[in-house]
Nucleic acid binder design. Structure first.
Length: 263
DNA sequence: ATGGCGACAGGATGTCGA
């Protein structure tokens, strides 16, 4: 089974690129982030015609997540509230950032973790609060679904080797100690970074700023991830970043990441 | 040091992303 994650930065702008990418791959599950469209305007039929079931959880202009799956998903869970209850979630489901479903006995959790703007800002506090609630959510999900893959745009580089220039990054958004600690807390639930099962060196990135020719200079960050429960981690046979779509005209600023799980 | 670029909403330019 191939599970891919891709922050497309608007599905309507990137529709043709996602379609042609899927046609050249053999993807079973594609998790999208930053779809940036309300559900009634989501271009679902082109992807259905390609053989995918389409599950969407979007909003106007910002955020939005979706799962495309060749196999039908029986129970789709949108937001934190179905798992944690409205009292625990509060305003955190106003932004559409998490959708999950069970496919072939594997629970796929697709997340678009908040960016956080800058360390110490209100958005930074929101990001940390959101990560804390994500931990509560995953704790419950792992009880129900022990085979779990959480993937998406985490907006956190786990280690210095995941940043093109790791100097002076302690107070940089996506690399601060509190963000990494929040990610560690999630990993400590029993989830491991699929990419690092296979690749140990630096210089492998999933996001490059549109500005300053960052991609051609490979000035990037590895912030899109798959974290796997122990059995899935054991069965993972590959995890890689496909930089080809990032070379196209009018690309997303993120590249897709593909995880392969054997049987 | 700052801004660079791109998408969206709305109909000029401000907000947001990372």
């Amino acid at each position: 089974m191939k599970i891919a994650t891709w922050n497309v930065n608007s599905i309507r702008t990137r529709q043709d690129q996602v379609l042609s990418w899927l046609q050249g791959q053999d993807i079973d599950v594609l998790c999208l982030q930053e779809t940036k469209v309300i559900d009634q305007d989501f271009p679902r039929s082109p992807f259905e015609e390609l053989g995918y079931h389409v599950y969407i959880y979007g909003q106007k202009a910002y955020n939005g997540v979706a799962i495309f799956s060749r196999l039908n998903i029986e129970s789709v869970i949108m937001g934190f509230t179905p798992i944690l209850g409205a009292d625990q979630v509060g305003e955190l489901d106003d932004q559409k950032r998490v959708i999950a479903g069970v496919i072939d006995d594997i629970c796929i959790v697709n997340v678009y973790i908040p960016n956080g703007s800058s360390v110490g800002s209100d958005k930074y506090e929101y990001k940390l609060q959101w990560l804390n609630r994500l931990g509560d959510y995953l704790q419950q999900m792992l009880i129900k679904y022990p085979h779990l893959c959480i993937c998406g745009d985490f907006n956190i580089a786990p280690e210095d080797r995941d940043i093109y220039n790791p100097q002076n990054r302690e107070n940089h958004i996506m690399a601060s100690a509190a963000e990494r600690q929040a990610l560690d807390a999630i990993a400590n639930l029993g989830l491991a970074d699929g990419f690092r099962k296979f690749t140990q060196d630096g210089g492998h990135f999933t996001w490059w700023d549109y500005r300053a020719a960052s991609f051609t200079r490979n000035r990037g960050w590895r912030i899109d991830h798959h974290y796997l429960s122990p059995g899935l981690y054991q069965n993972a046979i590959a995890c890689y970043i496909d930089t080809e779509p990032r070379t196209q005209p009018k690309p997303s600023d993120h590249a897709p990441v593909i995880l392969e799980i054997g049987t």
